[in-house]
Design a protein around this nucleic acid. Structure first.
Length: 499
RNA sequence: GGCGGCGUAGCCAAGUGGUAAGGCAGAGGUCUGCAAAACCUCGAUUCAGCGGUUCAAAUCCGCUCGCCGCCUCCA
């Protein structure tokens, strides 16, 4: 089985053959740290986190680099607004970014280079470009001359003639071609600046990714990722800079781009002012739900943000969580069930073996998470059917299989970055349990755990005596404290949702 | 004007030549004191529309309609 990825440069799916047999080099454009990130940004980082995880799952070692753009016009403007200096703004939002990444459940990249710490590397590239005749200097500004670079426009599939430079923004008249872009900008007083051969200034946006990706991954690395909107001009310019300076191609083997998050059928973007912040949405839904929402659609397709879609993702996730909980519950009770071998067990065993292959097949097809979820849900169905059988008849073998199924489910969902079956060993039970137990059971308890046990027992007793009022009272009061009680043929299953 | 994409059940969504996965919501049923979970049954003769190629098309080609993105910063 081979992995296929959609390469923007080729405009089709290609077999993925990394530069080195067992190691993948991957660079993803990180944030410009001038604001909190929104769901659109989050989708990109989650998409590439899933790709990162899947490559590792597939046995590759992955060198994952994601930069931080900490010098930029927007940061300068933001600093003025907030009355901070640019460094403080950058630090503030880098910290926030890291918090958001962690709360999203994203694994950190191995290397997270900052633009301001790589000025020398950028200056080297700029000097190289001037020497080779690909760039020119005017009044302390340095521009890349796009007409000198042959492949310009190849990634985005456009030609210089067809582009409408200046359509929406005035063109700097000093430039030799309207599409020429800045490599170095002379700085105004009060702006962050570094000494360069052309006077004090700061780097243009595109140069940092060329310089830093080459530094850490070398020319010709495997995957360069980012949002769809970065194809032009950002990634186009990166290619021009890197390949012009190196005098060889390719700069990158596979270009991967994720689709947008839309809201009310419009792109979610800071510039459109329709963003929903990651930290806001996570308060309401949590990372598992948000990730479920993302992976239910292929990463290259647009995805529409609506409350309804998030709720739907939450319900789907619950179906998976229920299966895990129900397995756990049954396994805990298993010693009470004498079992003999039952029919249909072989089918279930096959299913456990097969699900991983189906999952991988889907993921091998350009990381088709939506299709992979289909395999997961087929599996869930089988688990539920097997669980129902096992209520009456649980052999050693089926116990073992249920555990296998559970582990498999956790493993595969883990590849999507969705964490299941966490055992919160040290989870603190609410102290109100003591009071509740005292008033209902009529006895003082010292530990919350025993109080909870006594309450459940009291309810069981009430149910046996058909005292429904009391039984329902216990369930209702425990519900207020976050406990969910489910009566099963095998007793009362208690689920505690952490608030 | 150029380039790219999208349109599959009430909603979300996979499927890119072999006869429509899956999830959510909904209806009925089983189980059940109630609740929850789960299970069973029910939904597109059809994939925006119209033509064409083919033994065979949601999938390929052409046209039409509608929507979106990029060509400025943007994930």
């Amino acid at each position: 089985m081979s992995l296929k990825v959609y390469n923007t440069l080729a405009r089709k799916k290609e077999e993925f053959i990394p530069r080195e047999k067992e190691r993948v080099s991957m660079y993803v454009c990180g944030p410009t740290v001038y604001n909190y990130i929104h769901i659109g940004n989050a989708r990109c980082y989650v998409a590439f986190d899933v790709i990162y995880r899947y490559l590792q799952y597939r046995g590759y070692g992955v060198t994952y680099v994601r930069n931080l753009t900490d010098v930029d016009d927007k940061i300068i403007n933001r600093a003025k607004e907030e009355g901070l200096d640019t460094k403080e703004v950058a630090e503030k939002y880098i910290k926030a970014f890291h918090e958001d990444m962690e709360n999203l459940g994203n694994k950190p990249p191995q290397i997270e280079p900052r633009a301001t710490e790589h000025i020398d590397e950028m200056l080297e590239v700029i000097k190289c470009l001037i020497e080779k005749g690909f760039a020119y200097e005017i009044d302390g500004d340095v521009f890349f001359e796009v007409q000198r670079f042959n492949g310009y426009g190849e990634l985005s599939g456009r030609t210089l003639e067809k582009m409408r430079a200046g359509e929406r923004v005035d063109v700097d008249k000093r430039k030799r071609h309207p599409m020429d872009f800045a490599l170095w900008k002379s700085s105004k007083p009060g702006e962050p600046n570094w000494d360069g051969p052309w006077g004090k200034g700061r780097p243009g946006w595109h140069i940092e990714c060329s310089a830093m990706s080459s530094k850490y991954l070398g020319m010709g690395f495997d995957i360069h990722g980012g949002g769809h909107d970065l194809i032009f001009p950002h990634h186009e310019n990166e290619i021009a800079q890197a390949e012009a300076c190196a005098g060889k191609a390719p700069f990158v083997r596979y270009w991967l781009h994720n689709g947008f998050v839309n809201i009310r059928d419009e792109k979610m973007a800071k510039s459109l002012g329709n963003v929903i912040l990651v930290r806001e949405i996570l308060k309401k839904y949590g990372s598992n739900v948000l990730r479920m929402f993302f992976v239910s659609t292929h990463y290259r397709s647009p995805i529409n943000y609506t409350e309804e879609n998030l709720d739907s993702a939450a319900a789907a996730l619950e179906r998976i969580e229920n299966a895990i909980q129900n397995i756990d519950y049954l396994l805990n009770k298993s010693e009470e069930i004498a079992g003999t071998a039952m029919s249909g067990i072989e089918g279930f065993e096959e299913m456990i073996k097969g699900v991983e292959e189906k999952f991988a097949q889907a993921m091998d097809d350009d990381f088709n998470t939506a299709s992979a979820l289909g395999a997961i849900f087929d599996f869930i169905k089988e688990i539920n059917l097997f669980l129902e059988e096992s209520q009456k008849n649980l052999s050693e073998k089926s116990r073992y299989l249920l555990k296998e199924a559970r582990d498999k489910l956790i493993k595969l969902m883990g590849v999507l970055g969705i964490k299941l079956g966490r055992k919160e060993v040290a989870k603190k039970l609410p102290g109100e349990l003591l009071d509740l137990a005292k008033s209902i059971v009529g006895q003082a308890f010292e530990k919350e755990g025993t109080a909870l046990g006594a309450l459940v027992d009291a309810r069981e007793k009430a149910r046996r005596e058909k005292d429904w009022t009391k039984a329902d009272l216990v369930r209702k009061e425990l519900g207020k404290l976050g406990f969910i009680l489910k009566d099963t043929p095998r007793g009362c299953q208690v689920i505690y949702e952490e608030k």
